[in-house]
Design a protein around this nucleic acid. Structure first.
Length: 808
RNA sequence: GCCGAAGUGGUGGAAUUGGCAGACGCGUCGGACUCAAAAUCCGAUAUGGGCGACCAUGUGCGGGUUCAAGUCCCGCCUUCGGCACCA
């Protein structure tokens, strides 16, 4: 068969008949099956796309055939750096290349055989979409969840933009791997930390991979401790955060982050030069240096002193870059006896070390024990000491229990061109003013010089920048930055069902009907970015009354990664990239998809190897031959009866196959589902080989076979269904049901073990009760031989499987 | 260092709640068809021993629980992924 021609034929027919267009009023429970949308950085789909979208599409088709009203949309995450970098290199405008890529990709996605409804799609770079991204920004702003502040931020000198914390990997830009530096800039942030607790608390509710949940827990980094106020000698005070308030008596010095605003005022004239030098040094260090645990701790004394609130002791204040300004309060109380970092620092700079917890062999000791050298608290278990000491401080207003998070607010400004403009206006008189909603979208101008120079490209477009202030009417300037593309992707799943809406981002009634997403499939690399941001958006929008649910994605599955043949991640530089195209030309897209689903465990992935691809091709050929045979033999006349053992056996295999394939698809175990179908085909061959030819049974089995094949090889199944005289389309057929009665064999083979070792096999009637089975087992010759000289202690019968005899 | 996942034949990978380990493929070997090859069809294939029905050993390593452990418990080893000076 000419697979390519056959596939094209059905793709055309599906298109013409709008087979996949979604109608919310169709019967059947709604099922929102979603794959992470694709980024159109290149026109061609790579194996990773196929591996994500092919199997996910099979799942959607399966659910559709089961009678669900499946909503299965696809779109494009179209803004972003690669298109812009490509433009800088080639001179082709990001808009032109992106739209051209999307067109080709859409065609290729049809080619996969994807059952996507292209009437429900989004392109995040369409003004009709980003108008609402901007609108959502304004809603966050109005609700105090978007704010601007100056802060030291991650700067990628190669991409010429700031990055969110989540986009910095090992101190490098996650995109280009350039070492990230820090800059003090005024930027927009989303207050995701306000939802830290809920983002953490709701995780157990989700049917997500444990791995991803663990990563989010880790990332959110909830830490229970206390905030304790240290006053300064000459007035003023500063809070520190600590998880070890119990060790407060062992505090011998304090450390501020070099960026801490208090540093200037507490530094004495004698120390000023050293402090200034150190701050310069700290600012110059890249994150890579600064974050390294192996790095030796450094710092300088400021000359200032703080008062320990529990005992009034005067302790020196140092600055050191092992204290991070962005975590906690940017200041710590150092207890060198009970903290490794403080200990190392104290040794180096010869600061006093005082033990206040008993236990351990040497110092530092971080374990638990009784408090000592802590007047008023001595002898108390240190775990209780935390509460007691904080309570004592609380009376004086010098301390309280506090929860801190590792997660920071989400920095969303980007000094790049190809993104959604931030809908804000800067007015000399009125300050920062939101663009009125009726003036949205703030359109991204086409004609912009986006050669990177460290400033926002939009800054150079005067026509864009100059506006009148919506409050006072005087000349003002637009915000020149664009939003992180993760903002665009934080809400696209809400837009799909209502993507034509020009009045609102999404209609709440439609949301009530269609959301949340029932099944979300995509790569694990988004664990702490997209998946966290989308959850934050959902919760924030819910609190604004725009949604009625708490979580966007009820079930999440991460497909594995297909590696190069060498077992390494595919990359151009390694030269181990495998392109799907040649395989598809040779075998067709069904075979390719099905091989991906058969040759790997979906969750695991693995190194590419095409040994098995011929097997799938051969398998479909076998099915085609069978279809030819049964068609030739003619349809059943009626009146055929199940008589022979071969017929019963075939029905048994069929019933089991239906049952297993259904279960396997439910849990996305595609490889075993396909193996099951292969077994059915083997059974059909055996049946034919034996000369049997009961048309009723053959047509029943073949009919179910084609239906079960439909999710995996949609074009092929449509063709076979058609050849067998089925009325278009196979996807409007009902998923086969398992005939329970056929699943029982008349005779069951049971293993008999004596003391854990199989000694005999027994053919037993399926209906036989335990006692009969037990008696038969004990009467067996081989069992009796094995029991010679032993006394039977216990007999355990597991019906239809095993008899276990214990004897001494 | 902390958190998470995994380790099964020559090979990709199977094994619902502990219940006949290695399904289904690939590869290899043998057979049928053929003048021959390809394609197709049938059969064998964990390891060691035996002509054989069979026996013994086997799921990273060492212990344990159980009639029964790839699966559960304790202690390790290795690989991969994530976090990492977070006070």
């Amino acid at each position: 068969m000419d697979y390519r021609a056959m596939e094209k034929k059905w793709e055309k027919k599906w298109e013409e008949t709008k087979l996949y267009s979604f109608d919310p009023n169709q019967p059947g429970e709604k099922k929102y099956v979603l794959e992470m949308f694709s980024y159109p950085s290149a026109a061609k789909l790579h194996i990773g796309h196929w591996y994500n979208y092919g199997p996910a599409d099979s799942f959607a088709r399966f659910k559709r055939m089961q009678g669900y009203n499946v909503f299965h949309p696809m779109g494009f995450d179209a803004f972003g750096l690669p298109a812009e970098n490509y433009a800088i290199k080639t001179g082709i405008h990001p808009k032109d290349s992106t739209y051209a890529n999307m067109e080709i990709m859409e065609e290729q996605l049809r080619n996969i055989g994807g059952s996507f409804d292209w009437n429900h799609t989004v392109k995040t770079c369409d003004p009709g979409y980003y108008k609402w991204t901007q609108w959502l920004f304004l809603q966050l702003y109005k609700n105090g969840l978007a704010y601007r502040k100056e802060a030291p931020v991650n700067w990628c000198p190669s991409c010429n933009t700031v990055l969110a914390n989540e986009q910095v990997v090992d101190g490098c830009c996650e995109r280009c791997h350039t070492a990230v530096t820090r800059r003090n800039l005024t930027q927009w942030f989303f207050r995701i930390t306000q939802y830290a607790d809920e983002l953490l608390a709701d995780l157990p509710k989700l049917d997500w991979p444990e791995r991803i949940k663990a990563m989010q827990v880790n990332w959110i980094g909830r830490s229970e401790g206390a905030e304790i106020t240290f006053s300064l000698e000459n007035g003023g005070s500063f809070p520190v955060f600590t998880t070890r308030a119990d060790t407060l008596f062992g505090n011998t010095y304090c450390v501020l982050a070099p960026e801490h605003p208090l540093v200037d005022s507490i530094t004495t004239p004698e120390q000023k030069e050293a402090v200034d030098q150190y701050r310069e040094y700290a600012a110059g260090a890249s994150d890579i240096d600064r974050l390294s645990t192996a790095r030796e701790k450094t710092g300088v004394f400021t000359g200032g002193y703080a008062i320990n609130p529990i005992n009034g002791r005067k302790v020196p204040i140092w600055i050191a870059d092992y204290v991070l300004f962005s975590y906690g309060t940017g200041a710590v109380m150092a207890v060198p006896a009970h903290d490794e970092r403080d200990y190392e620092f104290a040794l180096k700079y010869d600061l006093p070390i005082e033990r206040v917890v008993e236990g351990g062999e040497g110092l530092p000791y971080i374990g638990s024990g009784k408090l000592i050298n802590s007047p008023g608290f001595d002898g108390m278990e240190n775990t209780k000491g935390i509460g007691a000491i904080v309570a004592a401080l609380e009376e004086k207003g010098m301390g309280k229990l506090k929860v801190n998070y590792r997660m920071r607010d989400w920095l969303i400004s980007r000094q790049r061109y190809w993104g959604a403009p931030i809908p804000m206006i800067h007015c000399e008189h009125c300050g920062v003013v939101p663009v009125p909603e009726d003036q949205l979208p703030v359109e991204l101008p086409y004609d912009v010089d986006f050669t990177p120079d460290g400033t926002s490209p939009l800054l150079k477009n005067e026509a864009f920048m100059n506006v009148t202030c919506p409050v006072c009417g005087q000349p003002a300037r637009r915000d020149a930055d664009t939003m992180d593309t993760f903002v665009c992707s934080s809400w696209y799943y809400l837009r799909y069902p209502d993507c034509e809406n020009t009045e609102e981002a999404f209609n709440i009634d439609i949301m009530d009907k269609m959301l949340p997403v029932d099944m979300y499939i995509g790569g694990a690399e988004h664990a702490c970015m997209h998946l966290l941001y989308a959850r934050f958006f959902t919760k924030a929008l819910r609190d604004m009354g725009l949604l009625h649910f708490d979580e966007p994605f009820l079930r999440l599955v991460n497909q594995g990664l297909i590696l190069g043949p060498d077992g390494e991640k595919m990359s151009k530089s390694r030269g181990n990239v495998v392109s799907p195209d040649d395989y598809i030309d040779q075998y067709g897209s069904d075979v390719f998809r099905m091989y991906l689903m058969f040759g790997f465990s979906y969750i695991e992935g693995g190194a590419w190897n095409d040994d098995g691809i011929k097997a799938i091709s051969r398998f479909l050929d076998r099915v085609e031959r069978l279809v030819g045979q049964v068609c030739e033999n003619g349809k059943p006349q009626g009146g055929e009866k199940v008589a022979s053992a071969a017929e019963k056996e075939l029905l048994y295999v069929l019933a089991n196959t239906v049952s297993r394939v259904t279960d396997d698809l439910e849990r996305l175990s595609f490889n075993t589902a396909i193996a099951r179908i292969m077994e059915l085909v083997n059974a059909l061959y055996r049946y034919r080989e034996a000369g049997a030819n009961n048309a009723a049974i053959l047509w029943k089995a073949m009919g179910d076979l084609v239906l079960m094949l439909a999710p995996f090889a949609p074009h092929f199944a449509e063709e076979m269904f058609n050849r067998m005289g089925g009325e278009y389309s196979v996807f409007q057929q009902k998923w086969p049901e398992c005939n329970e009665a056929d699943m029982v064999r008349d005779i069951v083979n049971i293993a008999v073990q004596v003391n854990g070792r199989v000694r005999a096999r027994l053919d037993v009637e399926a209906q036989a009760d335990n006692k009969a089975i037990e008696a038969a087992a004990l009467a067996d010759e081989k069992v009796q031989a094995a029991l010679e000289g032993l006394t039977v202690q216990k007999v355990i019968v597991i019906p239809k499987r095993l008899v276990s005899i214990v004897a001494k």
